[in-house]
Design a protein around this nucleic acid. Structure first.
Lengths: 339, 339
DNA sequence: ATTGGAATATTTAACGTTTCACATTTCAGA
DNA sequence: TCTGAAATGTGAAACGTTAAATATTCCAAT
């Protein structure tokens, strides 16, 4: 490896002390115009660029934020990470990513690695359920994002998934549906639990029955929605409306419905959650509940940066509101042709 | 901030020298069983965990790899990054991500930041066109992935996009199509150029005309495919088959075709590239060309690690082969009803 | 006993910064 | 001309680790 240009090299070239060069770099005011010019010239000439690791050691700050994600290949999380990266860069921070693969053990490892003073702060979408084991005792500033264990009290930033479930279900009820099934997401995740609860609360408020399809899978994919709905059909139960816990599952459900020769929305109305890119382009375009992912990522990073800089926090638990996007996959049920 | 447990603390507690503790940590053989036990005990007791930044400064290795991506919110890149993260973690490396937003200037900034000795190596999917400006003169080991400038000679890892274009087009020709349009991806990207060339080469080999739809956009999204195909229709040209440069554009195209009251595949056959998750669940399921993203990411990281460890490389330019996935969006053209 | 090499442990000097404390210069005001 | 605070510069000590060199112990082979 070739020797790298250091502060010392610049100092020697410009015939000043190392400290002075450092001062120039850090825009310390008490450097005379003349020497500043000379130092700047030397820096330019030698192509000096600061050694972030050395700075990190000295200052105790790495200007990096770690993000522990359950599943990076999931477009939903990819979008969140993307937004987080933007905000982090804006503030001069670099994002480190750790994929926990929806596995609590791997997650714990990720957190431990991240906390080894790699990162100034930690952003985490927890895969674990109730026990927040891996996080407590963690000294590194951290903010929980998207998924938060029940009863979690530390700073966090989430979406109102309960409300999302309500919005979707209320929309179906308003259209006149009385036979509304739910395709639940992975039961160990908070968002899936909350959306389910939202759905239940609306049905209960209207005295309607809960035709719940608990999908057995461990993920939010298209095939989960597909097989879940196939299972429902195989029981002979055909609802007039289906609320899927996310858009990808809704896509799978859509396929299952169409394969059975039924029409969306005439025979079955369908609602998803997330409003991923393709939702608008499905046939029919999918009614869904939009989640402000970018806002969430932004809020979470803002929170984390305040934590890192030990600033005063007014609100420590940010909850963002979803928005119903009505498209063509939902309509009133046919009168008289139920089941 | 609370004082953090350091090697020195452990050393004092175990009543040995700092070096000995370091030696224990690094599994240096010449430590007696007795002291090793005592040190291990102290480490356990005090909860020591090494300071990666200090290690990085001392050893000159950060055990980190930077990945510069054009667009992280694109599921295609999310999948690549996800795979890369897996492989990196396997080897004990952490992934830093930089989003260049398809912008050469931002990309250059990312590269510069990454190269400030943050990362031991650099993985980059270049957004730039022919001029490899930001990379040359870069001392940090680097591997180009997925997108490589024309004539690029440094280590790289790519997919055979030319072949992908050929596979898709040949499939359509084999089915008997003679009127095959192409929806091109962003023209400044190598993959889009190559797929276009693959399409052209097959048409030329069969003496068929090139009904090329150049979409004006700067991205690979659904709406790009949608508007591109709408534009094509507005010229009165209705091909019997469409080859879209990726699946998302194909989804948009599918919608445009269906909105016009045409059927896929009876009126128009449709092929995409990538085989993203939803492709199998579309109506009809999309015929597409599968790209081995994980293999590419794995190969790229392997290459990069060898570069970092200055190992001998047998092959420096890896090219991976695509695979045609035939589904229900393609069929033979109707005889006699060609426009 | 003496030698010498392996085994075990320690001292010391880095790695490239920042920062504290101090030294020197400058210069307005008395 | 003298005073002292502001302006400008420097030296040295960290930050926590590793690695080379050195010191000490131990023990088998002479």
């Amino acid at each position: 490896m070739v020797h790298h240009v250091t502060l010392r090299d610049v100092a020697e070239y410009a015939e000043v002390s190392v400290t002075t060069v450092s001062n120039v770099m850090r825009d310390w005011p008490y450097v005379s115009h003349k020497t500043r010019e000379r130092v700047l010239g030397a820096i330019e000439k030698l192509g000096y660029t600061p050694h972030v690791v050395a700075q990190g050691l000295r200052t105790g700050q790495t200007q990096a934020i770690a993000f522990v994600v359950p599943d990076l290949s999931n477009p939903y999380f990819a979008a969140i990470v993307s937004a987080a990266e933007d905000v982090a860069q804006e503030h001069g921070y670099t994002l480190l990513i750790f994929n926990s693969h929806e596995n609590s053990d791997r997650e714990a490892v990720c957190i431990r690695r991240a906390a080894r003073r790699w990162a100034d702060g930690l952003l985490i979408a927890q895969t674990a359920g109730a026990h927040s084991s891996s996080l407590d005792g963690l000294v590194t500033p951290h903010v929980a994002i998207d998924r938060v264990p029940e009863g979690y009290q530390s700073p966090s930033c989430t979406l109102d998934n309960f409300r999302a479930g309500q919005l979707a279900t209320q929309h179906l009820v308003d259209l006149g549906h009385t036979h509304i099934a739910h395709l639940g997401g992975p039961t160990h995740t908070r968002p899936a639990q909350e959306r389910l609860r939202g759905w239940q609360s609306v049905l209960a408020a209207h005295g309607l029955p809960s035709h719940y399809v608990q999908h057995s899978g461990n993920s939010w994919g298209c095939d989960d929605g597909y097989t879940a709905l196939q299972n429902l059909f195989s029981t002979g139960d055909v609802p007039t409306a289906v609320f899927a816990s996310n858009d990808r599952m809704a896509v799978g459900a859509l396929r299952a419905i169409q394969e059975r020769g039924l029409n969306v929305p005439d025979d079955v109305s369908l609602v998803g959650v997330d409003d991923i890119e393709i939702s608008r382009f499905l046939n029919p375009p999918l009614t869904t509940v939009r989640q402000p992912l970018e806002d969430m990522a932004r809020a979470a990073i803002d929170l984390l940066l305040k934590l890192i800089h030990a600033e005063q926090l007014e609100t420590t638990q940010v909850v963002l509101q979803p928005q119903l996007m009505i498209r063509q996959s939902t309509t009133s049920p046919r009168t008289g042709s139920a089941t």
